[in-house]
Write a protein that binds this DNA or RNA. Sequence first.
DNA 1: TCTGGGGTCCTAGGACCC
DNA 2: TCTGGGGTCCTAGGACCC
Length: 426
Amino acid sequence: MFALVDCNNFYVSCERVFNPGLQNRPVVVLSNNDGCFIARSEEAKAIGLAMGDPAYKNRELLRQHNVAVYSANFPLYGDMSARVMKTLETLAPDLEIYSIDECFLDLGGFGKFNLADYAAATRKTVHRNTGIPVSIGIGATKTIAKAANRMAKKNLSLGGVCILSTAAATREALGAMAVEHIWGIGSQYAALLHKQHIHTALDFADAPTHWVQKHLHITGARVQQELNGHSCLPLELVRSRKQSICTSRSFGSLVSSYEEIGYAIAHFTSTCAFKLRREGSRASLLTVFLYTSPFIEKENRYRGTRTFALPFPSNNTLELQKAAQLLLASIYRSGYGYKKAGVLVSGITDEKGAAMTTLSLFDNDPLPRNQKRDMKLMETLDAINSRFGQGTLRTASDTNSGWKQRQEKLSPHYTTRWNDIIEIHA
DNA sequence: TCTGGGGTCCTAGGACCC
DNA sequence: TCTGGGGTCCTAGGACCC
Protein backbone atom coordinates (compact mmCIF):
# COMPACT_ATOMS: atom_id res chain seq x y z
CA MET A 1 0.00 0.00 0.00
CA PHE A 2 1.02 3.59 -0.70
CA ALA A 3 -0.10 6.79 0.98
CA LEU A 4 -0.09 10.20 -0.64
CA VAL A 5 0.12 13.11 1.78
CA ASP A 6 -0.85 16.38 0.08
CA CYS A 7 -0.88 19.81 1.74
CA ASN A 8 -4.20 21.59 1.38
CA ASN A 9 -4.02 24.80 -0.73
CA PHE A 10 -0.37 24.79 0.25
CA TYR A 11 0.83 28.34 -0.49
CA VAL A 12 -2.31 29.82 1.05
CA SER A 13 -1.86 27.61 4.11
CA CYS A 14 1.75 28.88 4.48
CA GLU A 15 0.53 32.49 4.51
CA ARG A 16 -2.15 31.59 7.06
CA VAL A 17 0.33 30.02 9.49
CA PHE A 18 1.89 33.45 10.06
CA ASN A 19 -1.25 35.51 9.65
CA PRO A 20 -4.18 33.87 11.48
CA GLY A 21 -6.47 36.72 10.40
CA LEU A 22 -6.56 35.00 7.00
CA GLN A 23 -8.60 32.06 8.35
CA ASN A 24 -12.15 31.82 6.95
CA ARG A 25 -11.32 34.53 4.39
CA PRO A 26 -10.84 34.16 0.66
CA VAL A 27 -7.07 34.17 0.02
CA VAL A 28 -5.12 33.79 -3.24
CA VAL A 29 -1.41 33.59 -4.06
CA LEU A 30 -0.22 34.93 -7.42
CA SER A 31 2.47 33.61 -9.75
CA ASN A 32 5.70 35.55 -10.33
CA ASN A 33 5.08 39.02 -11.69
CA ASP A 34 1.75 38.97 -9.83
CA GLY A 35 0.27 37.33 -12.94
CA CYS A 36 -2.03 34.37 -12.33
CA PHE A 37 -3.65 32.55 -9.42
CA ILE A 38 -1.47 29.62 -8.35
CA ALA A 39 -3.12 28.89 -5.00
CA ARG A 40 -6.62 29.56 -3.70
CA SER A 41 -8.29 29.01 -0.35
CA GLU A 42 -11.60 27.11 -0.35
CA GLU A 43 -13.41 30.46 0.05
CA ALA A 44 -11.59 31.82 -3.04
CA LYS A 45 -12.54 28.73 -5.07
CA ALA A 46 -16.18 29.18 -4.03
CA ILE A 47 -16.18 32.75 -5.41
CA GLY A 48 -15.16 31.34 -8.79
CA LEU A 49 -11.48 32.31 -8.95
CA ALA A 50 -9.97 29.69 -11.27
CA MET A 51 -6.52 28.10 -11.09
CA GLY A 52 -4.16 29.78 -13.57
CA ASP A 53 -6.52 32.64 -14.40
CA PRO A 54 -4.87 36.10 -14.66
CA ALA A 55 -5.49 38.36 -11.68
CA TYR A 56 -6.23 41.45 -13.80
CA LYS A 57 -9.27 39.73 -15.35
CA ASN A 58 -10.71 39.18 -11.86
CA ARG A 59 -10.07 42.60 -10.35
CA GLU A 60 -13.75 43.24 -9.65
CA LEU A 61 -14.34 39.88 -7.91
CA LEU A 62 -11.23 40.36 -5.78
CA ARG A 63 -12.48 43.76 -4.63
CA GLN A 64 -16.11 42.73 -4.09
CA HIS A 65 -15.19 39.84 -1.81
CA ASN A 66 -12.30 41.57 -0.10
CA VAL A 67 -9.94 38.79 -1.15
CA ALA A 68 -6.51 38.75 0.50
CA VAL A 69 -3.98 38.74 -2.37
CA TYR A 70 -0.33 37.67 -2.02
CA SER A 71 2.67 37.67 -4.33
CA ALA A 72 4.45 34.29 -4.43
CA ASN A 73 6.96 33.96 -1.58
CA PHE A 74 8.87 30.84 -2.60
CA PRO A 75 11.58 31.05 0.09
CA LEU A 76 8.79 30.84 2.69
CA TYR A 77 6.96 27.97 0.93
CA GLY A 78 10.19 26.02 0.39
CA ASP A 79 11.10 26.29 4.04
CA MET A 80 7.61 25.29 5.22
CA SER A 81 7.71 22.33 2.81
CA ALA A 82 10.99 21.16 4.33
CA ARG A 83 9.39 21.26 7.79
CA VAL A 84 6.41 19.17 6.65
CA MET A 85 8.69 16.59 4.98
CA LYS A 86 10.93 16.43 8.04
CA THR A 87 7.91 15.58 10.18
CA LEU A 88 6.77 12.90 7.71
CA GLU A 89 10.24 11.34 7.79
CA THR A 90 9.71 10.58 11.47
CA LEU A 91 6.37 8.89 10.75
CA ALA A 92 7.16 6.53 7.85
CA PRO A 93 10.17 4.33 7.07
CA ASP A 94 10.36 5.14 3.34
CA LEU A 95 9.08 8.16 1.51
CA GLU A 96 9.34 9.98 -1.80
CA ILE A 97 9.11 13.76 -1.81
CA TYR A 98 7.13 14.17 -5.01
CA SER A 99 6.65 17.94 -5.13
CA ILE A 100 6.79 20.97 -2.87
CA ASP A 101 3.50 19.96 -1.24
CA GLU A 102 3.19 16.20 -1.83
CA CYS A 103 4.85 13.12 -0.43
CA PHE A 104 4.34 9.40 -1.09
CA LEU A 105 4.82 7.02 1.85
CA ASP A 106 5.50 3.31 1.57
CA LEU A 107 3.04 1.49 3.82
CA GLY A 108 4.30 -1.94 2.74
CA GLY A 109 5.19 -3.03 6.26
CA PHE A 110 2.08 -1.64 7.93
CA GLY A 111 0.08 -4.87 7.74
CA LYS A 112 -0.78 -5.04 11.43
CA PHE A 113 -1.50 -1.36 11.89
CA ASN A 114 -4.88 0.26 11.60
CA LEU A 115 -4.34 2.52 8.58
CA ALA A 116 -7.20 4.86 9.52
CA ASP A 117 -5.67 5.51 12.95
CA TYR A 118 -2.23 5.96 11.40
CA ALA A 119 -3.49 8.46 8.82
CA ALA A 120 -5.43 10.46 11.40
CA ALA A 121 -2.38 10.61 13.68
CA THR A 122 -0.18 11.70 10.78
CA ARG A 123 -2.50 14.58 9.91
CA LYS A 124 -2.59 15.67 13.52
CA THR A 125 1.19 15.54 13.97
CA VAL A 126 1.95 17.47 10.78
CA HIS A 127 -0.55 20.13 11.76
CA ARG A 128 0.79 20.39 15.29
CA ASN A 129 4.43 20.63 14.13
CA THR A 130 3.97 22.99 11.18
CA GLY A 131 0.47 24.50 11.18
CA ILE A 132 -0.14 23.04 7.71
CA PRO A 133 -3.34 21.01 7.09
CA VAL A 134 -2.89 17.90 4.91
CA SER A 135 -5.09 15.30 3.22
CA ILE A 136 -4.13 11.64 2.95
CA GLY A 137 -5.10 9.08 0.31
CA ILE A 138 -4.16 5.42 0.57
CA GLY A 139 -4.30 2.73 -2.10
CA ALA A 140 -2.59 -0.28 -3.67
CA THR A 141 -0.62 1.83 -6.18
CA LYS A 142 0.59 5.41 -6.36
CA THR A 143 -2.08 6.25 -8.93
CA ILE A 144 -4.84 4.84 -6.69
CA ALA A 145 -3.40 6.72 -3.69
CA LYS A 146 -3.60 9.88 -5.81
CA ALA A 147 -7.25 9.19 -6.61
CA ALA A 148 -7.97 8.45 -2.94
CA ASN A 149 -6.33 11.73 -1.98
CA ARG A 150 -8.59 13.60 -4.35
CA MET A 151 -11.62 11.99 -2.73
CA ALA A 152 -10.32 12.85 0.75
CA LYS A 153 -10.20 16.50 -0.32
CA LYS A 154 -13.55 16.59 -2.15
CA ASN A 155 -15.61 14.68 0.39
CA LEU A 156 -15.52 16.64 3.62
CA SER A 157 -17.28 13.87 5.59
CA LEU A 158 -14.14 11.72 5.24
CA GLY A 159 -12.18 13.92 7.63
CA GLY A 160 -9.24 14.41 5.27
CA VAL A 161 -8.47 10.70 4.85
CA CYS A 162 -9.58 8.21 2.20
CA ILE A 163 -8.43 4.60 2.24
CA LEU A 164 -9.08 2.32 -0.75
CA SER A 165 -7.96 -0.98 0.72
CA THR A 166 -9.88 -3.45 -1.45
CA ALA A 167 -10.34 -3.89 -5.19
CA ALA A 168 -14.10 -3.46 -4.78
CA ALA A 169 -13.75 -0.16 -2.90
CA THR A 170 -11.26 1.03 -5.50
CA ARG A 171 -13.55 0.21 -8.43
CA GLU A 172 -16.46 1.96 -6.76
CA ALA A 173 -14.35 5.10 -6.21
CA LEU A 174 -13.01 5.06 -9.78
CA GLY A 175 -16.57 4.75 -11.09
CA ALA A 176 -17.38 8.08 -9.45
CA MET A 177 -14.30 9.88 -10.80
CA ALA A 178 -14.13 11.64 -14.17
CA VAL A 179 -11.40 10.35 -16.45
CA GLU A 180 -9.71 13.78 -16.65
CA HIS A 181 -9.02 13.68 -12.92
CA ILE A 182 -6.77 10.64 -13.16
CA TRP A 183 -3.12 11.39 -12.43
CA GLY A 184 -1.42 11.20 -15.84
CA ILE A 185 -4.49 12.03 -17.95
CA GLY A 186 -4.42 15.65 -19.06
CA SER A 187 -6.86 17.66 -21.13
CA GLN A 188 -5.73 16.30 -24.53
CA TYR A 189 -6.02 12.65 -23.57
CA ALA A 190 -9.27 13.33 -21.70
CA ALA A 191 -10.83 14.77 -24.89
CA LEU A 192 -9.67 11.73 -26.87
CA LEU A 193 -11.07 9.33 -24.24
CA HIS A 194 -14.45 11.08 -24.04
CA LYS A 195 -14.73 10.68 -27.83
CA GLN A 196 -14.35 6.94 -27.27
CA HIS A 197 -17.11 7.04 -24.63
CA ILE A 198 -14.58 6.52 -21.85
CA HIS A 199 -15.92 8.94 -19.24
CA THR A 200 -14.98 7.64 -15.80
CA ALA A 201 -11.72 6.40 -14.32
CA LEU A 202 -13.36 2.96 -14.14
CA ASP A 203 -14.20 3.06 -17.88
CA PHE A 204 -10.52 3.76 -18.50
CA ALA A 205 -9.37 0.94 -16.22
CA ASP A 206 -11.59 -1.45 -18.20
CA ALA A 207 -10.73 -0.13 -21.68
CA PRO A 208 -8.98 -2.50 -24.16
CA THR A 209 -5.28 -2.44 -23.30
CA HIS A 210 -4.09 -2.56 -26.93
CA TRP A 211 -6.13 0.56 -27.73
CA VAL A 212 -4.72 2.39 -24.69
CA GLN A 213 -1.18 1.33 -25.61
CA LYS A 214 -1.63 2.53 -29.18
CA HIS A 215 -3.15 5.96 -28.46
CA LEU A 216 -1.77 6.89 -25.04
CA HIS A 217 1.54 5.06 -25.49
CA ILE A 218 3.53 3.40 -22.77
CA THR A 219 2.89 6.08 -20.15
CA GLY A 220 -0.89 5.80 -20.55
CA ALA A 221 -0.69 2.00 -20.44
CA ARG A 222 1.12 2.23 -17.10
CA VAL A 223 -1.59 4.49 -15.70
CA GLN A 224 -4.19 1.91 -16.69
CA GLN A 225 -2.23 -0.92 -15.07
CA GLU A 226 -1.88 1.14 -11.90
CA LEU A 227 -5.63 1.78 -11.74
CA ASN A 228 -6.15 -1.98 -11.90
CA GLY A 229 -3.94 -2.44 -8.88
CA HIS A 230 -0.73 -3.46 -10.65
CA SER A 231 2.02 -1.21 -9.36
CA CYS A 232 4.26 0.11 -12.19
CA LEU A 233 5.56 3.24 -10.50
CA PRO A 234 7.83 2.33 -7.61
CA LEU A 235 8.61 4.72 -4.79
CA GLU A 236 11.68 6.72 -5.80
CA LEU A 237 13.63 6.81 -2.58
CA VAL A 238 16.72 8.61 -3.86
CA ARG A 239 16.19 11.80 -5.76
CA SER A 240 17.93 11.38 -9.11
CA ARG A 241 20.21 13.98 -10.63
CA LYS A 242 18.29 16.58 -12.65
CA GLN A 243 18.64 16.15 -16.43
CA SER A 244 18.07 19.82 -17.13
CA ILE A 245 17.98 23.01 -15.09
CA CYS A 246 16.20 26.13 -16.28
CA THR A 247 16.14 29.68 -14.96
CA SER A 248 13.74 32.00 -16.75
CA ARG A 249 11.56 34.98 -15.95
CA SER A 250 8.91 37.15 -17.50
CA PHE A 251 9.78 40.81 -17.27
CA GLY A 252 7.59 43.27 -15.37
CA SER A 253 7.53 45.47 -18.48
CA LEU A 254 8.80 44.95 -22.02
CA VAL A 255 12.57 45.07 -22.49
CA SER A 256 14.11 45.99 -25.85
CA SER A 257 17.69 46.95 -25.20
CA TYR A 258 20.41 44.42 -25.88
CA GLU A 259 22.36 45.61 -22.87
CA GLU A 260 19.43 45.15 -20.50
CA ILE A 261 18.66 41.64 -21.75
CA GLY A 262 22.37 40.85 -21.45
CA TYR A 263 22.18 41.67 -17.74
CA ALA A 264 19.17 39.40 -17.33
CA ILE A 265 20.85 36.53 -19.22
CA ALA A 266 24.00 36.92 -17.11
CA HIS A 267 21.86 36.72 -13.99
CA PHE A 268 19.92 33.62 -15.15
CA THR A 269 23.19 31.95 -16.16
CA SER A 270 24.75 32.58 -12.79
CA THR A 271 21.66 31.10 -11.10
CA CYS A 272 21.86 28.01 -13.34
CA ALA A 273 25.57 27.62 -12.53
CA PHE A 274 24.81 27.89 -8.83
CA LYS A 275 22.05 25.27 -9.06
CA LEU A 276 24.45 22.95 -10.92
CA ARG A 277 27.10 23.30 -8.20
CA ARG A 278 24.53 22.75 -5.48
CA GLU A 279 23.57 19.46 -7.14
CA GLY A 280 27.18 18.44 -7.68
CA SER A 281 26.57 18.47 -11.46
CA ARG A 282 28.08 19.90 -14.62
CA ALA A 283 26.37 20.69 -17.91
CA SER A 284 27.65 20.17 -21.43
CA LEU A 285 24.86 22.05 -23.26
CA LEU A 286 23.73 25.61 -22.70
CA THR A 287 20.57 27.08 -24.26
CA VAL A 288 19.54 30.73 -24.26
CA PHE A 289 16.03 31.80 -25.25
CA LEU A 290 14.28 35.09 -25.74
CA TYR A 291 10.54 35.57 -26.38
CA THR A 292 8.13 38.34 -27.13
CA SER A 293 4.71 38.07 -25.48
CA PRO A 294 2.58 35.22 -26.88
CA PHE A 295 -0.48 37.45 -26.49
CA ILE A 296 0.37 39.99 -29.22
CA GLU A 297 -0.40 39.79 -32.95
CA LYS A 298 1.48 37.04 -34.76
CA GLU A 299 3.42 39.46 -37.03
CA ASN A 300 5.07 41.10 -34.03
CA ARG A 301 6.12 37.90 -32.29
CA TYR A 302 9.64 36.54 -32.19
CA ARG A 303 11.11 33.52 -30.44
CA GLY A 304 14.87 33.17 -30.47
CA THR A 305 16.50 30.05 -29.05
CA ARG A 306 19.92 28.55 -29.55
CA THR A 307 22.09 25.89 -27.94
CA PHE A 308 25.85 25.75 -27.51
CA ALA A 309 27.83 22.56 -26.87
CA LEU A 310 30.53 23.39 -24.34
CA PRO A 311 33.99 21.92 -24.98
CA PHE A 312 33.93 20.47 -21.44
CA PRO A 313 31.08 19.97 -18.99
CA SER A 314 31.05 22.98 -16.70
CA ASN A 315 29.39 24.52 -13.66
CA ASN A 316 31.61 27.59 -13.72
CA THR A 317 29.68 30.85 -13.72
CA LEU A 318 32.31 32.72 -15.76
CA GLU A 319 32.61 30.06 -18.46
CA LEU A 320 28.85 29.67 -18.79
CA GLN A 321 28.27 33.42 -18.88
CA LYS A 322 30.75 33.83 -21.74
CA ALA A 323 28.97 31.17 -23.79
CA ALA A 324 25.56 32.63 -22.91
CA GLN A 325 26.53 36.09 -24.18
CA LEU A 326 27.67 34.60 -27.50
CA LEU A 327 24.33 32.82 -27.84
CA LEU A 328 22.39 35.95 -26.97
CA ALA A 329 24.30 37.93 -29.59
CA SER A 330 23.27 35.40 -32.23
CA ILE A 331 19.55 35.34 -31.39
CA TYR A 332 18.88 38.95 -30.39
CA ARG A 333 16.90 41.01 -32.91
CA SER A 334 16.48 44.72 -32.37
CA GLY A 335 13.08 46.35 -32.70
CA TYR A 336 11.15 43.88 -30.52
CA GLY A 337 9.79 44.39 -27.03
CA TYR A 338 10.79 41.23 -25.17
CA LYS A 339 8.62 39.78 -22.43
CA LYS A 340 10.57 36.74 -21.32
CA ALA A 341 14.06 35.27 -21.42
CA GLY A 342 15.82 32.32 -19.90
CA VAL A 343 18.77 29.98 -19.72
CA LEU A 344 18.65 26.19 -19.75
CA VAL A 345 21.53 23.83 -19.03
CA SER A 346 21.40 20.16 -20.01
CA GLY A 347 23.61 17.25 -20.96
CA ILE A 348 24.25 16.99 -17.25
CA THR A 349 26.89 14.76 -15.68
CA ASP A 350 28.29 14.09 -12.26
CA GLU A 351 30.80 16.71 -11.13
CA LYS A 352 33.30 14.04 -10.18
CA GLY A 353 32.95 12.13 -13.43
CA ALA A 354 33.23 15.35 -15.39
CA ALA A 355 36.53 16.19 -13.71
CA MET A 356 38.02 13.14 -15.43
CA THR A 357 36.97 14.33 -18.89
CA THR A 358 39.35 13.62 -21.74
CA LEU A 359 41.44 16.70 -22.48
CA SER A 360 41.18 18.48 -25.81
CA LEU A 361 43.93 17.95 -28.35
CA PHE A 362 43.49 21.51 -29.59
CA ASP A 363 42.94 23.49 -26.40
CA ASN A 364 46.03 25.35 -25.27
CA ASP A 365 44.72 25.81 -21.75
CA PRO A 366 46.23 23.38 -19.30
CA LEU A 367 42.79 22.32 -18.16
CA PRO A 368 43.53 20.58 -14.86
CA ARG A 369 45.30 23.56 -13.34
CA ASN A 370 42.65 26.08 -14.44
CA GLN A 371 39.90 23.78 -13.36
CA LYS A 372 41.30 23.54 -9.85
CA ARG A 373 41.67 27.29 -9.67
CA ASP A 374 38.13 27.87 -11.00
CA MET A 375 36.61 25.35 -8.63
CA LYS A 376 38.24 27.13 -5.71
CA LEU A 377 36.91 30.45 -7.01
CA MET A 378 33.35 29.10 -7.27
CA GLU A 379 33.58 27.55 -3.81
CA THR A 380 34.59 30.90 -2.41
CA LEU A 381 31.82 32.69 -4.30
CA ASP A 382 29.21 30.26 -2.95
CA ALA A 383 30.57 30.49 0.59
CA ILE A 384 30.34 34.30 0.59
CA ASN A 385 26.83 34.30 -0.91
CA SER A 386 25.66 31.59 1.44
CA ARG A 387 26.76 33.68 4.42
CA PHE A 388 25.76 37.16 3.27
CA GLY A 389 22.89 36.37 0.87
CA GLN A 390 22.64 35.37 -2.81
CA GLY A 391 23.84 38.17 -5.07
CA THR A 392 26.24 39.70 -2.54
CA LEU A 393 29.19 38.73 -4.74
CA ARG A 394 28.50 38.49 -8.47
CA THR A 395 29.94 39.29 -11.88
CA ALA A 396 29.70 42.84 -13.17
CA SER A 397 27.41 41.72 -16.00
CA ASP A 398 24.90 40.37 -13.47
CA THR A 399 23.47 43.71 -12.37
CA ASN A 400 19.72 43.06 -12.39
CA SER A 401 18.97 46.71 -13.07
CA GLY A 402 16.06 47.33 -15.38
CA TRP A 403 14.19 44.05 -15.80
CA LYS A 404 12.69 43.75 -12.33
CA GLN A 405 9.51 41.81 -11.76
CA ARG A 406 6.34 42.96 -10.12
CA GLN A 407 5.90 41.72 -6.54
CA GLU A 408 3.55 44.15 -4.93
CA LYS A 409 1.94 41.98 -2.27
CA LEU A 410 4.89 40.08 -0.86
CA SER A 411 4.61 38.73 2.67
CA PRO A 412 7.70 38.77 4.93
CA HIS A 413 10.22 35.92 4.72
CA TYR A 414 9.06 34.81 8.16
CA THR A 415 11.41 31.85 8.50
CA THR A 416 14.43 32.65 6.33
CA ARG A 417 15.37 36.32 6.68
CA TRP A 418 16.37 38.02 9.94
CA ASN A 419 15.63 41.53 8.70
CA ASP A 420 12.04 40.59 7.90
CA ILE A 421 11.55 39.14 11.37
CA ILE A 422 13.02 42.22 13.04
CA GLU A 423 10.67 44.39 11.00
CA ILE A 424 7.59 42.42 12.08
CA HIS A 425 8.41 43.05 15.73
CA ALA A 426 9.41 46.69 15.30
C1' DT B 1 12.77 -8.33 -61.64
C1' DC B 2 15.86 -7.31 -58.12
C1' DT B 3 18.23 -2.53 -53.74
C1' DG B 4 20.06 -4.61 -45.85
C1' DG B 5 20.42 -4.19 -41.14
C1' DG B 6 21.61 -2.04 -37.06
C1' DG B 7 22.94 1.71 -34.73
C1' DT B 8 23.73 6.96 -32.62
C1' DC B 9 22.90 11.80 -32.16
C1' DC B 10 20.24 15.87 -32.71
C1' DT B 11 16.11 18.62 -33.04
C1' DA B 12 11.41 19.47 -32.58
C1' DG B 13 7.19 18.77 -30.74
C1' DG B 14 3.58 16.81 -27.87
C1' DA B 15 1.93 15.04 -23.78
C1' DC B 16 2.03 15.11 -18.85
C1' DC B 17 3.09 16.75 -13.71
C1' DC B 18 3.37 20.33 -9.71
C1' DT C 1 -1.26 48.04 -18.61
C1' DC C 2 -2.01 43.45 -16.99
C1' DT C 3 -1.43 36.36 -18.82
C1' DG C 4 4.32 31.88 -14.14
C1' DG C 5 8.17 28.76 -13.64
C1' DG C 6 10.39 24.33 -13.56
C1' DG C 7 10.47 19.81 -14.64
C1' DT C 8 9.75 14.63 -16.94
C1' DC C 9 9.03 11.16 -20.59
C1' DC C 10 7.97 9.71 -25.29
C1' DT C 11 7.79 9.87 -30.43
C1' DA C 12 9.36 10.88 -34.92
C1' DG C 13 12.26 12.31 -38.55
C1' DG C 14 16.67 13.57 -40.51
C1' DA C 15 21.58 13.07 -40.78
C1' DC C 16 25.08 10.44 -39.98
C1' DC C 17 27.99 5.97 -38.91
C1' DC C 18 29.56 0.92 -40.18
